[in-house]
Design a protein around this nucleic acid. Sequence first.
DNA 1: TTTTTTACTTACTTACAAGTAAGTAACTTT
DNA 2: AAAGTTACTTACTTGTAAGTAAGTAAAAAA
Lengths: 189, 189
Amino acid sequence: MQDTKERIITLAEELIKTKGFNAFSYKDISDPLEIKNAAIHYYFPTKTDLGVAVLEQYLKSFTFHTAKWAELPEDKQLKQLFDTFSRASKDKFICLMGSLSPDYDTLQPAMQEQVSNMASAIVQWVASCLERGRSKGLFRFEGEAYDRALLVQSNLLASLLLSRVMGNKVFGKMSSRLMKDLLVDNTKK
Amino acid sequence: MQDTKERIITLAEELIKTKGFNAFSYKDISDPLEIKNAAIHYYFPTKTDLGVAVLEQYLKSFTFHTAKWAELPEDKQLKQLFDTFSRASKDKFICLMGSLSPDYDTLQPAMQEQVSNMASAIVQWVASCLERGRSKGLFRFEGEAYDRALLVQSNLLASLLLSRVMGNKVFGKMSSRLMKDLLVDNTKK
DNA sequence: TTTTTTACTTACTTACAAGTAAGTAACTTT
DNA sequence: AAAGTTACTTACTTGTAAGTAAGTAAAAAA
């Protein structure tokens, strides 16, 4: 049963996105899965091993999904990314970057590296999406695509954080304003 | 000696901005201040009491500083805010919002309320700064000032998070792009 | 000058976290 | 059929966290 291992990873990811990496404990996993904490250690000797596994799975899934979107026009691709954040917002989740980056200094090197990899992968993807979209006339923005990608990634990440604190309406306000800023207006009469 | 109490609050604030609220312990305070952990409990019966005190002090300080800037033109006022984040970035600090909002669901109601108050205060201040600045022709942006303030606050907050993970150059890239976006270009020949 | 208050320390308690060593039942391979 | 191997459990250790009860020395108030 590789099933248990996967369920541990999936639940750990949810816990990171709700409580944070340092705030969840093995009991938060062993109780709902009806296993003992030692079973988690069997698959993941240390909490860092578990964290790394969560990040590896996320990166695989990110790569898989963005590849699936590759045929879409760039504005639709970016919309897909926004939609994943919109779903997270509804589930009261924050994203892995929003959860793990504040704890970065408390993480062990192996996890820090994975967090950095994740950050780079997301920003790189957004940057090339924006760049191609701009050259096709779908997006409008000033400056380098990479710098713009940093700001977009920031806004998505923080929209989930602020929504938690200030209420869920904030997500809609932020994401719609952000998208309007980027899109070349094609609704002109 | 009210001095000890203030030193506890100041150190607690730093710890929140480096390790996070749940990740720091009373030992992180009692050791450097050369007191016993019971001395902290003397002033702050629970960790929540300490957290609330940190946030109250921050809010007072924020109100004080923004009041001091009130006579400046709005672009300079916003610049002051950016500068506080720039200093934080150099000290490898994140801001209180960036640290506490991911942990929001693990905080007790008394602290949640203070975090919400802080969020509102900052966004409100940025919003009215942007609004007045735009009407004076200092800023240019689309949409409501409040929505724009959410995005600006997001970008500042997340610039510190991303800088931690991706290196310190990121802060400069983000803040300069953000400021250029907002400023009406007055460097035209 | 006695009493009270302030600002702590000493010495605990309770709880829970991550992690481990040794065992076991069931399945797989030889 | 015997010998691993897999997927766990049982039962524990060690460390550390927040928090507390009782005491104390010095300063302030009566």
